[in-house]
Every structure is written in C-alpha cells, then in structure tokens.
Design a protein around this nucleic acid. Structure first.
Lengths: 204, 204
DNA sequence: CGAAAAGTTGCAGAGTCCGCAAAACTGCTG
DNA sequence: CAGCAGTTTTGCGGACTCTGCAACTTTTCG
C-alpha cells in the first residue's frame, strides 16, 4: 500500500498538501477567524468546491499537518526492533521527532499558539491526536500480543505516551521554563512510567 | 460562588438545561445529522437565536451533559480528604460517578454510540474532556503543592486518570466484554498506577 | 414605581458544507 | 494515436450555521 505512484495519485497528494499547507500558513499569518475556505482554495489554486473534496472542514485542513506527523510516527514505531520494551520504543520515536533547531522551535510555538487561540481548532487537534492514538494502539497491540478490541493495555500506553508529549509541549510553549523541550518530554515519560507517584511536598 | 439564586439565574440555568437536554435527546433519537438548531430551539421553547446565546455550536449543546458531569466530578474531587493519596481520590471519584443501574447502562451506551457516529461530536466530546482535564489539574495542583503552569505532574495524572476512564468506557461499550464497567475502570487504574508494564505474553 | 441591567428575539449577511451533473483529465488498450 | 473508462475538478443551488445589531421584554433594585 501507498506505493502507487501514478501521476494521478501524485497529483492528489500534491493538491492535498498544497491545501493543508496554505490553510496552515494562512491561519498562522492572519489568525484562524480571518481565513476563509475561498482564500485557502485560491492559495492552492483550486476551486472552493475542490477544497471540500479533500477536507470536510476548514479546521481539518489547518491541522492536517498533525495527521501527517502522526503517520510518520506510526511508521517509525513499526520500524523499531520487536524486542525493544514498548516504553523505550515510544520514547525514542517521540523524542526523535522533535525538531530541535531554533527555527523548528519558533515554528512549533507559532503553531501551538495559533491552535490554542481557537476552540474549533483545538477540537480538531484533539481529534487528530485521537486518531493517532488509535493507530498507535493498533501497532502496539500487534507487537505486544494484545488485542486492541479487548485489552486496555495498548490504548492506555498509547494515550499515556501521547498525552505526556502533548503536556510537555503545552507547558514548554507557555514559556515559563528555560529547559529544553526534549528534557521536558523525557521527564514526562519518566513520571508516567513510574506510575505518577505523589510528588514530594518538600521539593522546591 | 454559584450561590446566586435569583429568578434570573434560575431561568438561565433552566433554559440551558432544556436546550442541552433537547439537543442530546434529539441527537440520540434521530441521529446527529438530522438535528437542526431550529428543532432544538423549538423543543426547548426558545428562538433559534437564543440557542446561540447559550452554545456556540450544535455539537457543544449535544455534549453539554459531559461538561455538567465534569463539574460535579470536580466538586467531588475537591471534597475528598486532603491527605488521601491522589490516585485513591481520583479512582474513588470516578468509580462513584458510574451509574450501575441497567437503565443507566443502556443510556450510557446509547450516548457513546451517538457520539462515536459523528466526527464533529467526537471533537466536541474531546474538547469537553480536555476542559475537565484542565480543571482537574488545577484542583490536583492545589492539593499536591504543585503548580499547574510549571509542573508536569498535575496534568499528567489528570490526563492519565481521565483517559483510563474513557478507554474503559469505550472498550466496554464495544460489548466484547461481559465484565462490569466498574471492573474495567478499576483495572485501567491499576495498570496506569503501575506504570503500564509490558504485559506478559504468556497470558491467555 | 421607575430606571438600569440583563435576556430574548428577528433580521440581515457572511460563510460553511454537501449533492448533483457537466466538463476536464489520466491511464489504458486496441 | 484515437478513443474509452474511470477519476477528479468545478459551478451551481440549497440548506444550514453562526454572528452582529437593534428593538423589545423581563428582572432587579433603589
């Protein structure tokens, strides 16, 4: 699958990418409320009607990059050695996906801020993350010999890992920290893997 | 707060409740796609324009009962003894909130099915749960001496607990189990509290 | 009672989203 | 390479969502 490279499929993928890129860029630049489907379609050189053949809502197009990211992550996860402990695989895959360049950081922060500013986009983001979570659960189930339609484990660990990363990013984007994002993510993983023991009140 | 009981506040609360109840009922009965704002407003005896004074979207009204549930849970959580371990408090509050009557079960299943059937409602549900998560994190931070704008802990445990319950419910609603919902929730909590250790491949 | 404050309603307007059918395009096959 | 079958794009029409605004009604309180 995903190996058909006819002109047709390539064009479709290109159109989809152009639409989501345009949607995302315009949302960051102008603010979500000031972006219309018409403007997105124009920026991607297709008709407004075509936009709706690819995305069922403006918000979906804006957060489509999350879905792409999730697809890449799922692939990476599947490539990890089968005997690696699940938590190690998850941590590795997420940590490796973080772009640590200053430019990447700036972009990520602008993204998170744009998303946070609009409830409808937040909702779409959560949907995208939920989709990722489900895909992860399937992969994890296959690897751990569990069944995603019966066992809690694959869903719980996929959710815990995803939520750890999201929490670390959200907190990091608040800018109250000077710690690198990687450190925060690693700490979040450590806490969750330890079962989130009650923090020591004497600390700090 | 929440102690003003003037006629005005009571009427507002009643209108809001009537709208969300009507929205929810119609969505379950007819399916989300066949419910219009006009119909919801008519069922609650107000104008369509008034509907939008209370809810910013149809989906928000449909899942408003989740927000109410979250409010009650937050209150319950705040009432738990301050020296009870956090995990115990969370588990207690969630388990106590589950209506175990056959009628309650049937309603819950219909709810979950209605939500699952429509992407826009799923997104709204996730938003509502995210709001609950944030409120929980604040309460937990206050109790554990952590800071919700800096520390990972309160967000992680609130998310882990909420996700454990959601996962248990979703899996339970699939109907592959004959185990009671309470058991599933309790097991989910146990797994998460133990840090989600790799399951034993030799089991079953 | 009588004003101030708050809530409700209708209307107009911008915009979303979808179904449908015609037109344009791609990939084959003869 | 002509032509056909399958796919995608597009315009149009229509139903519906959502918001600002201004008038109107109701509640509150001095």
């Amino acid at each position: 699958m995903t190996v058909e490279v006819g002109l047709r499929e390539r064009k479709k993928a290109a159109t989809r990418a152009a639409l989501s890129a345009a949607a995302n860029r315009l949302a960051v630049e102008l603010g979500v409320e000031h972006v219309t489907v018409e403007a997105i379609a124009a920026a991607a050189d297709v008709s407004p009607r075509t936009f709706h053949n690819y995305f069922s809502s403006r918000e979906e197009a804006i957060v489509a990059s999350i879905v792409d990211w999730a697809d890449r992550l799922t692939d990476e996860l599947e490539k990890r050695p089968a005997d690696e402990p699940m938590w190690d695989s998850l941590q590795r895959v997420f940590l490796d996906s973080v772009d640590e360049s200053p430019d990447g950081h700036a972009r990520l922060i602008r993204q998170l801020e744009m998303i946070k500013a609009n409830p409808a986009v937040i909702a779409s983001q959560l949907s995208a993350l939920e989709t990722m979570r489900r895909r992860f659960a399937e992969t994890i189930a296959a690897r751990t010999g569990t069944d995603a339609s019966i066992d809690l484990y694959p869903h719980l660990i996929a959710g815990a890992a995803g939520h750890a990363v999201k929490t670390a990013m959200d907190l990091w984007a608040l800018g109250q920290h000077d710690r690198p994002l990687r450190d925060l993510i690693a700490e979040a993983f450590t806490l969750v893997r330890a079962g989130l023991p009650q923090p020591d009140p004497s600390r700090s």
